[in-house]
Design a protein around this nucleic acid. Structure first.
Lengths: 365, 365
DNA sequence: TGTTAGCACTCAACACAGAAGAGTGCTAAC
DNA sequence: GTTAGCACTCTTCTGTGTTGAGTGCTAACA
């Protein structure tokens, strides 16, 4: 069976109508609303073919047709009309850039909030993974007699702090000198490059007691290893309840529970795509679009996820996703995310993120 | 009409049954399940009285009775049987304390997660308000040519960092000296005590260019002023969808939307209690219990909120709340929160939080 | 005077049946 | 290849009893 131009037109009509109404689409509706010079009977025949091709399906015998995951996929890859993001939306996103000096963390949060507000879906941002970024600066700050704060700054302007226990008090002066040694040895490295042997090597240069040093350095090492349980930020989770496909409370609960489970979200979002997925779910090499059953997780079978990955030093360090019903406005979401990618080239383009001062530059252009 | 002992017994029976089943309770159910030597007819008469007193209500003529907000209030204040928290629960909470050195922020998050898991309701934690805590340490850390990070540590072990723009680069050495001056002048003060005149006074002591200094100090001042949009942490939001009272999707959405609106949550949780509320909603001066219609917010009319406020330096700096359906297991939630209060006396008791090293001590006992 | 049995009444919830309506698939004609 | 027509299917809606839980009232009883 051939995939004629007309079949594609009809598929597109079905999808467009369904995106709007969330109701199964019948042949007569199409012949009325999308006049293409053929009768509903002809459309019926074509629809029958489309169904056989697995692009649309029938909830029950006497209902209209709704798009299948495969149908949406075809639509997204080939049929969708891409229009420019509205000026208002672009301005909203650009508004983020106004605040000139911002840490990556809070910037990402802002982006998440804005995406959720803009799309009316749910935005999920995985915060930058410390592990993969290069350390720019390390500083120990006194907390109390028994502990200090270790502040890590990476070249992506990620700032993290962790409390480290102390065996005996250290003066501010000592902490400063210690920070200095740490900086000289560790800055420029990624956290995962900081190994125990390297830590051992530093001990010679330290001025304070030997076993004191030992335990402190070990603590720093541990902290860096385990500091990195990735944070996830979700915005607009309730938005998704506005769509009729989630008026079923069980589904609503399932998706809300998903939003609660960090591990699972990480697995789905940050996750390395399964091999067989590569050719279907990838797009432009920039956005990753997973539609309905393309998601492995049961709870997401009725959802689509569009993910942009952001980079630093050619390494993917986190992602920004929009989750919505399968019947989502793909065009709008993709536009928004592509706008982001375009406007923050240093953040999203693996090739252009080598330079110092990283994503800052993206903001100017 | 007098409030006889028997009426109270019947009210208690109604509430206990309703907490369990979520169904309106009839007179016969009570006479069968809570034998107190009177017939259902008598119970009917008493119930009629209880309804007139506003303690129970009838969804419709031929249904049983359900407790009203006022009924729950009476129950919580006078009837509820308080049993000890189960050993398992206590252990779970005590587990938090194991991790000896923890920042207040992450500890509160942990507490929130645990409360949600323990109670099966939703926990909301408002993070400590920087404004009201005393500064313990201030440190400037280099970020890049155009900005530095201002790290603030308060005596409650709250750590916050903010990026501050720079007019011209400063060396690490300069930043260190600058930090030193800031510390000498500002530590021991609360953020709100740091006024512009005070900032001006410091300028003399600085070694770097005059207008450079001016702008940096102003930026610090601004940062401290505005740094403090209070963060809120929510855990187990989806839990609440498990209860039949939220199987209505509109209600589910309303409550989920509430969990999204930081401003509104702050208003409800941190909020100063309305004057007329004082005598009804307060309890023990420790926990604040708001039942159903006692909440001002429409979306929370079917919910109850139990809030514990934590303190530092005799100042309330944040709160921990559990939100559940009005038909919540008050006993369990109150036990859990009181356990917390008991185990972290320095955190929750305004009188005992003066000392250095604050809430740390609570963990030992 | 308080308690209880009995009874009529109310009302939500459920099940069933019929009607309406949307949509299909098939067939035959164009 | 296209289309009109028609029988058929299946959901949705509406109306109608029926059931059962629960009440309120009354009259009798201790």
């Amino acid at each position: 069976m051939d995939m004629s131009e007309r079949k594609l037109q009809i598929l597109q009509a079905i999808i467009m109508n369904y995106l709007e109404t969330a109701e199964p689409v019948g042949s007569r509706t199409i012949s009325r609303r999308f006049p293409m010079g053929i009768s509903s009977a002809t459309i019926r025949n074509e629809m029958s073919d489309l169904e056989e091709l697995g692009l649309i399906e029938q909830p029950h015998t006497s209902a209209g047709r709704i798009p299948s995951s495969k149908g949406y996929r075809l639509y997204v890859d080939h049929l969708m009309e891409r229009d420019q993001m509205s000026q208002a939306q672009a301005n909203a996103l650009r508004g983020i850039l106004r605040e000139k000096t911002m840490q990556l963390d809070s910037m990402l949060r802002e982006i998440g909030n804005l995406l959720a507000a803009l799309t009316k879906y749910t935005a999920i941002v995985t915060m930058p993974q410390l592990k993969k970024a290069k350390l720019k600066h390390i500083q120990l700050i006194p907390l109390d007699q028994k502990s200090v704060i270790l502040v890590l700054v990476t070249d992506g302007n990620i700032v993290r702090n962790h409390v480290i226990p102390l065996k005996q008090p250290l003066s501010g002066e000592e902490l400063y000198r210690l920070s200095d040694v740490l900086n000289r040895h560790l800055s420029g490295l990624t956290v995962s490059e900081i190994t125990l042997p390297l830590i051992q090597k530093m001990k010679g240069e330290m001025y304070i007691g030997h076993d004191m040093m030992e335990s402190l350095l070990n603590a720093i090492h541990d902290t860096m290893r385990y500091a990195d349980d990735v944070d996830i930020f979700t915005s607009g989770a309730a938005n998704i309840l506005n769509f009729p496909e989630f008026s079923n409370i069980a589904r609503a609960r399932a998706i809300m529970e998903f939003f609660q489970q960090k591990d699972q979200m990480l697995h789905v979002l940050g996750g390395d795509s399964a091999p067989e997925e590569e050719n279907t779910a990838a797009r432009d090499g920039k956005l990753r679009i997973r539609i309905g059953s393309e998601n492995q997780i049961e709870q997401l079978r009725d959802c689509s996820i569009i993910t942009a990955t952001y980079h630093y030093n050619s390494q993917s360090i986190g992602s920004i996703s929009v989750v919505g019903p399968m019947r989502m406005d793909y065009d709008k979401v993709i536009s928004a995310l592509e706008y982001l990618i375009h406007d923050f080239p240093d953040l999203f383009d693996p090739e252009s993120s080598q330079e110092e001062d990283g994503y800052e530059k993206g903001r100017e252009g």
